[in-house]
Design a protein around this nucleic acid. Structure first.
Length: 885
RNA sequence: GGGCCGUUAGCUCAGUUGGCUAGAGCGCCGCCCUUACAAGGCGGAUGUCAGGGGUUCGAGUCCCUUACGGCCCACCA
């Protein structure tokens, strides 16, 4: 093989070559039983729905940098890749495709619903095989050194086991419950969606003022006068006829589900009416007038609020507050899952939401006081773009309070640290609300909820006994280590089954149908067959995608199995991600990690966060007993397009990194992105379209030019070394210690000192995840110090026989060191040059100044040690530079 | 409405605890195809550091305030 590098730097040629070698030699593969300090990163799994854009590229480049640096440091390093099944997004995409191509919806893919369900899932898997690989290909082109043998998918067997185990554990601990709750309902996809899947849009509508006649008015008139004395309210308010209350609403059709009218208890205009009733227009139903000082702001509107608990989150809260009190109110649902009105809407049954609204307004007649134009924010579903309807339905929830508290504490006390620090605030404020997490989705693509249920009726003890016997039978199976079931029985009062096995009981929301719910721990067909033979039916819903993502750091390592990988690499070293999923993902990983991996015995008194900040951030080790998934969370900037809009698949402005790789090369892309990885929250990246329709950007010239510089400087240095070899044939393998510090020139000492200063600078930058500083430091060192000055100076030095040998040694050692420092950012080009350098000058190094332990592959070469800088040389040489320039 | 962040050269961004004439890359102007590199070299122009006020011997940097932009959260019948 020629020792010459091709004259032209061509990333399209060298990048695939280098990657092939790494793959062939299994350079990315990690063995948990190997020695070395553990270092591990799990990838934020990209959604299978989309190709990666530059936002992913920066995130993954930075992860690869850390992975490569630590691999070079000799740590036992693993980077685990994977993909997220992205429940709602993926199903929506595939359903849309089927609709467009075949005109079918998800229910009509096969004769029966169950077959349709299987068929849809089969098609989504097909789709996943096709597109999931695309993401992996993109990551490989980027140069990511993931351990591909450990590639996970959030819906694969390994993840499924972790999901089942976690669900079971939460269920058993009473942290998963079934509740009838007001959820955000997507009437198009007919599923509940979480708050996070909603965006708000300003909608022009009307505010309708409607008169509600008061029933039982005679007792009110006198008190109304009394109230008016002390109030400074406008005369108009006082003069409202006492026969009516006026409510204002943007959704008049919900009136059909009103169950109360609320006023403020200290509002003299209306507090006299508390306890009386109003007669609802259109239906004539009587509903109570109640006091609710949280809902009603007397300064807003008319001071009267209609209460529709089944169709408004605030009103639902009113319903909850008044439960069990003398003024408790009803709850009436008027909607079907598809957004049409149901039988509770009387004459309006079957009408669509918007049609009903129109009709209701028409029918109000003279009870409609006025109609004023109004703008309001309405929640819309991310996926179907339709207005979300607050809807009352049965859902599974996770109780947040007990899980959130420890997760809050570890961030408050600094056990888990954010970089930059300010991002911790978002985590703390979101988690601090401890809102219960609705985890069921009425979808087919996802982890099916492992719960079987059966109508229980009210047969009481007899029924309970029967189930107790059932449990007894399954208890036996459990002893064989296969499976376990837990009964949740609303009416059961006993806590032991006939054979003495504990039965876990819970109180279920009074609205839920009286059912017995059985959670099956493992996918054990025998148990399931037994249940189904006894009339149990599996819950049709699947889990929120984030439920499986939340387990990612431990599920990818094999949990609940106690694998070597889990023992070695959990907790992971750092999580690198964008700030948009600090709440959705980061917080939930901390919660489930602590819940599943924490040592409960020790967790109570563990006051973990020693606040001694004297230690460098990267070296602190959190106590393993806490079970936290990582000690550091590094937030990378968000990539915006030229207009300042966030790059994303849904906006259609995402730029495929592969297109940049085509014009600039992966190294150039990586270098530029690293250079941009500052502490700011956003980075703008103007792109332009090429004639072939692909994107590129001049911004990446920075990286490409730098790679070109490196390429040519290396060619020159290699050439100089080769020349020197032929002139001193006998000394090709001369000892590395043949150059001692006495013989070094000022320029030699200076460049060596600059090198060591740069090592230190980079180590410091990496310890706090300042990737931009890393890129800047190495750029400046290589270009401005090494190329501009040392290499130039070497041209004359190499011609002087007295200085040639030492100069060659220094050139080789500094190039060697620079390649090591640059490799994590630009792995392909550095690895390629390394091979040639090994051929030309296999043994390198300046004793005590730059160590160059040999390695056939740069990816496995040792990371440089920062040696002391030479103060004198650093001081004197710049003066020389000034004189010359 | 609450919170976080940003506003520095035409563009994209640095500027660490307040301290010497405010920096980089790209772009621009001029001169160089000098034997590693024109994807380069040398030289050059360009900034009331968003506006206003304050603290200080000294402010891009700290405090207050205004404006504009972005993001997160909540959403008012």
């Amino acid at each position: 093989m020629s020792t010459d590098l091709p004259k032209t730097y061509d990333p399209a040629v060298i990048e695939p070559q280098a990657y092939d070698v790494w793959i062939k030699e299994r350079a990315f593969h990690a063995d948990p039983t190997a020695p070395g300090k553990p270092y591990s990163i799990v990838i934020p799994p990209p959604n299978v729905t989309g190709a990666l854009h530059l936002g992913h590229a920066i995130n993954n480049t930075l992860q690869d940098i850390l992975t490569r640096v630590h691999r070079m440091m000799g740590d036992n390093t693993v980077w685990i890749p994977g993909i997220d099944h992205a429940g709602i997004a993926t199903q929506a995409v595939v359903e849309r495709t089927i609709k467009e191509q075949e005109g079918k919806d998800r229910y009509s893919l096969a004769p029966s619903r169950e077959e349709s369900r299987n068929e849809l899932i089969r098609r989504i898997w097909q789709w996943k095989e096709q597109y999931g690989n695309r993401i992996v290909d993109q990551l490989k082109k980027l140069g990511c050194s993931c351990d591909w043998d450990r590639t996970r998918f959030t819906l694969d067997e390994m993840c499924a086991r972790a999901v089942r185990e976690t669900f079971f554990k939460l269920f058993k601990d009473g942290l998963i419950y079934r509740g009838k709750r007001l959820v955000n309902w997507d009437i198009h996809l007919q599923t509940s969606i979480s708050d996070d899947e909603i965006y708000h849009e300003t909608v022009k509508t009307n505010l309708w003022h409607i008169k509600y006649p008061i029933v039982d008015v005679q007792a009110g008139s006198g008190q109304q006068a009394a109230g008016s004395k002390e109030s400074g309210l406008p005369a108009a308010s006082r003069q409202l006829p006492a026969e009516f209350m006026v409510v204002a609403t943007t959704r008049p059709e919900t009136m059909l589900g009103d169950t109360a009218v609320a006023v403020h208890s200290e509002d003299p205009r209306w507090n006299w009416a508390i306890g009386k009733s109003v007669k609802l227009p259109l239906t004539g139903r009587l509903v109570p007038i109640i006091a609710d000082d949280i809902l009603v702001d007397p300064k807003f509107g008319t001071g009267v609020v209609k209460v529709t608990p089944a169709h408004d989150p605030n009103d639902y809260a009113v319903w909850q507050r008044h439960q069990g009190k003398p003024d408790q109110i009803d709850l009436i649902n008027i909607l079907n899952p598809d957004g049409t009105l149901n039988e509770n809407a009387g004459a309006y049954k079957g009408m669509k939401r918007d049609a009903a609204r129109k009709k209701v307004v028409e029918d109000l007649g003279e009870l409609l006081l006025k109609e004023e134009p109004y703008e309001t924010q309405v929640g819309h579903s991310d996926r179907s773009k339709t207005a979300v309807e607050p809807y009352l339905s049965d859902q599974w929830f996770v109780k947040m309070a007990p899980l959130a508290e420890p997760a809050l504490e570890v961030v408050r006390n600094g056990t888990i640290k954010f970089f930059p620090e300010r991002h911790a605030q978002q985590y703390l404020s979101w988690l601090g609300e401890k809102r219960d997490w609705p985890i069921s989705r009425q979808l087919w693509w996802g982890h099916r909820i492992p719960v079987w249920s059966r109508m229980q009726g009210y047969s009481g003890m007899e029924e309970a006994k029967k189930y107790g016997q059932t449990l007894g039978q399954i208890h036996r199976w459990q002893n064989e280590g296969r499976s376990q079931i837990i009964e949740f029985n609303k009416t059961s009062t006993h806590s032991q089954s006939p054979n003495g096995m504990p039965i876990h009981t819970t109180t279920i929301d009074r609205l839920v149908d009286p059912k017995t719910y059985v959670c099956v721990r493992e996918d054990d067909r025998e148990v399931i067959a037994f249940l189904e033979a006894n009339g149990f039916i599996q819950d049709p819903d699947v889990l929120d995608t984030w439920f499986s993502s939340a387990l990612w750091p431990h599920s990818t390592l094999g949990w609940p199995e106690q694998t070597d990988a889990l023992a070695k690499w959990y907790p992971t070293s750092v999580l690198l991600t964008g700030r948009d999923i600090i709440t959705l993902w980061v917080a939930r990983m901390v919660m489930t990690g602590m819940y599943n991996m924490g040592d409960r015995a020790g967790s109570g008194q563990q006051a973990a966060g020693s606040k001694n900040s004297g230690l460098p951030a990267a070296s602190r080790q959190p106590p393993a007993s806490l079970g936290i998934p990582f000690a550091h969370v590094a937030i990378n900037p968000t990539i915006l397009d030229g207009k300042g809009e966030r790059m994303s698949k849904s906006k259609g402005n995402g730029v495929d990194p592969v297109e940049i790789i085509e014009t600039h090369g992966a190294d150039a892309l990586r270098f530029t992105l690293t250079h941009m990885a500052t502490e700011t929250q956003d980075v703008r990246l103007p792109v332009k379209k090429l004639p072939n329709g692909k994107n590129t950007s001049e911004k990446f010239d920075l990286g490409r030019n730098f790679c070109n510089k490196l390429w040519n400087a290396a060619r020159f240095v290699l050439g100089s070394l080769a020349t020197e070899n032929t002139e001193k044939k006998n000394q090709i393998n001369s000892s590395v210690s043949s150059v001692n510090s006495v013989a070094l020139s000022l320029a030699d000492k200076w460049i060596i000192s600059r090198f060591n200063a740069t090592v230190k600078e980079i180590d410091d930058a990496l310890a706090v995840y300042r990737f931009d500083q890393y890129a800047r430091a190495v750029y400046q060192f290589f270009w401005n110090d090494f190329c501009d000055w040392y290499v130039e100076a070497s041209k004359s030095a190499m011609k002087d026989p007295a200085r040639a040998t030492q100069t060659a040694q220094v050139l080789a050692a500094v190039l060697d060191g620079a390649l090591r420092l640059l490799h994590p950012i630009i792995p392909f080009i550095t690895e390629t040059i390394w091979w040639r350098l090994n051929e030309v000058r296999p043994r390198r190094g300046i004793a005590g100044q730059i160590d160059c332990p040999p390695s056939p592959r740069l990816i496995k070469a040792a990371w440089p040690q920062a040696r002391p800088i030479d103060e004198a040389a650093e001081h004197v040489f710049p003066r020389l530079q000034d004189v010359i320039s």
